[in-house]
Computed example of a mutant assay.
Amino acid sequence: MANHSLQGKAVLIGGGAKNLGGLLSRTFAAKGAKICVHYNSAATQADADKTVAAIQADGGTAFAIQGDFTKVADVVRVFAAAKERFGGLDIAINTVGKVLKKPFVETTEEEYDSMAAINAKAAYFFIQEAGKQLNDHGKICTIVTSLLAAYTGLYSTYGGLKAPVEHFTRAASKEFGPRGISVTAVGPGPMDTPFFYGQETPEAVAYHKSASALGGLTKIEDIVPLVELLVTDGWWITGQTIFANGGYTTR
């Protein structure tokens, strides 16, 4: 098989500006990958610019580009820009997502539509475009959530609208497999980032910390090596969702 290191690989990271995406961007760049740092809106542009500057200061190659991935035209445009800049694309990782913690009977149509667009539609067309644009033996990985294996309330739209990504991953892995392209999903437990704390009460945070067998929340530093494995030496794993949550939940 071809070389499975990150050296010289062209990588597009959806939501690559901060938190898990930002750490993926910086870690992969430090190992010789060229990084397209996607960010969603003006609100995250400063984070994207900071991540690119940090990579460049270390002698790495990166650029930032804005795109609203709920719009298919933006997904297509971002992939095209990355492919043009790097002369090809090897790896596509999508960390984009949105959490809503709300009782089922209080969820509005607008909230449902927004959650569907960000968590399911954006993931579908990201995988679709990756399947069109990646080089042979490329790798696709989507960040989902360990809620897909949890028996809980209040996350009906978040867990429910990340759930389709499991099947998108299976279907794409079958269809893209003949080109040597691996397609995976990673379901972290509740992660110790601002993305998590926004909708949780102190009591809920304490519960989530106590619920993992290994103790505490999932750290982004514990997810990055798994994603790196899946898009390099772990290429033989495909069509699967891997739960990485310290024993928070399993199935």
Rank of each mutant, 00 (worst) to 15 (best):
V183D: 03
G177E: 07
D192H: 14
R179K: 14
D74S: 09
G189F: 00
D90K: 10
V72W: 09
N119M: 12
K162Y: 01
V205N: 06
E110R: 10
R77W: 00
H137F: 11
V105T: 12
A163H: 13
A150W: 04
V105I: 04
D136A: 08
V186P: 02
A185E: 07
G88H: 00
K121N: 12
D192I: 10
F125A: 11
K71H: 04
K98L: 04
A149D: 02
Y124L: 14
H167F: 13
Y197P: 07
E109W: 11
R77Q: 01
A81S: 14
L134W: 09
R179I: 08
L148I: 15
N94T: 05
E203C: 05
A172D: 07
I140R: 06
T157M: 09
L154K: 11
A150H: 07
A123L: 08
E84L: 09
P178K: 10
V105L: 06
A122E: 11
Y158Q: 09
G87V: 07
G187H: 11
A116G: 03
Y112P: 03
L154I: 07
A117K: 11
S114C: 04
Y124F: 14
V76N: 14
A80M: 06
K121T: 12
P194D: 05
E106I: 06
V165D: 10
T169K: 11
K174D: 01
K98W: 01
R179F: 08
D192K: 15
E166P: 02
H137A: 10
K162V: 00
N119P: 13
L89C: 03
T142S: 15
I181T: 10
A149Q: 01
Y124H: 12
S182N: 13
L148F: 08
K83L: 00
T107M: 02
F79R: 07
E200N: 13
F69I: 14
I181N: 06
K139R: 11
P178S: 08
E84N: 13
I91N: 03
E111P: 03
L148Y: 10
A81K: 15
A185S: 15
D192P: 11
M191E: 06
G187Q: 09
T107H: 02
T169L: 01
V183N: 09
K101E: 00
V144K: 12
K162N: 11
T95Q: 06
K162C: 02
F126M: 07
F176V: 09
T95I: 05
P202L: 01
Q199D: 13
F79H: 14
A149I: 00
L147M: 10
Y112D: 05
A204L: 05
A92Y: 09
F86G: 14
S173I: 13
A120S: 06
A204T: 15
I140Q: 10
Y151V: 15
P103V: 00
E106Y: 08
L161F: 04
K98C: 02
A130L: 06
G177P: 06
E203T: 06
P190V: 09
A120M: 02
D90S: 05
